[in-house]
């Protein structure tokens, strides 16, 4: 029996398959890295035109009197609360200081002494 070298197809070994796989993964990695890295490189180079940066973040609150009358929501306040003008300062609130409870002197009798107070 004879073998024709011209018609013989080379079969890849397991080692060769691994080499091809590593090369393919490296190519994909390089392409992805290039795509991601491009904008950062541009900023770092100072090539980008300066853009306007907002002076403050978007406002989360708005004064009621800044909203047109027709668009103002109805505010339901709890009992005892009122909506005031923002120009009016609320009355200062005194710090909470609970009354200090102390023992009465032993000499004080446990009886009532009436008086107008």
């Amino acid at each position: 029996m004879t073998t024709d070298p011209a018609t013989h197809r080379h079969r890849l070994t397991v080692f060769e398959w691994r080499l091809y796989l590593v090369a393919a993964l490296a190519t994909i990695y390089a392409l992805v890295w290039r795509a991601i890295d491009r904008p950062a490189t541009a900023v770092a180079d100072g090539a980008r035109e300066p853009t306007e940066v907002p002076a403050s973040p978007a406002r989360a609150t708005v004064w009621l009197d800044e909203i047109p009358l027709a668009q103002r929501p109805t505010i339901a306040t709890p009992a005892g609360w009122t909506v005031i003008d923002r120009g009016a300062s609320p009355a200062p609130v005194a710090p909470i200081t609970r009354p200090r409870v102390g023992r009465a002197p032993e000499s004080r009798p446990r009886r009532v002494r009436t008086r107008s107070s």
Partner: peptide, 26 residues
């Protein structure tokens, strides 16, 4: 019990000696 707010007071029960609470009229 006794709660005495500057002369405005409520007394409950029989008092410390069991014979009522004493109230001095100034």
């Amino acid at each position: 019990a006794m709660i005495d707010a500057g002369g405005d007071a409520v007394v409950r029960g029989d008092g410390p000696e069991g014979d009522g609470w004493l109230v001095d009229v100034e």
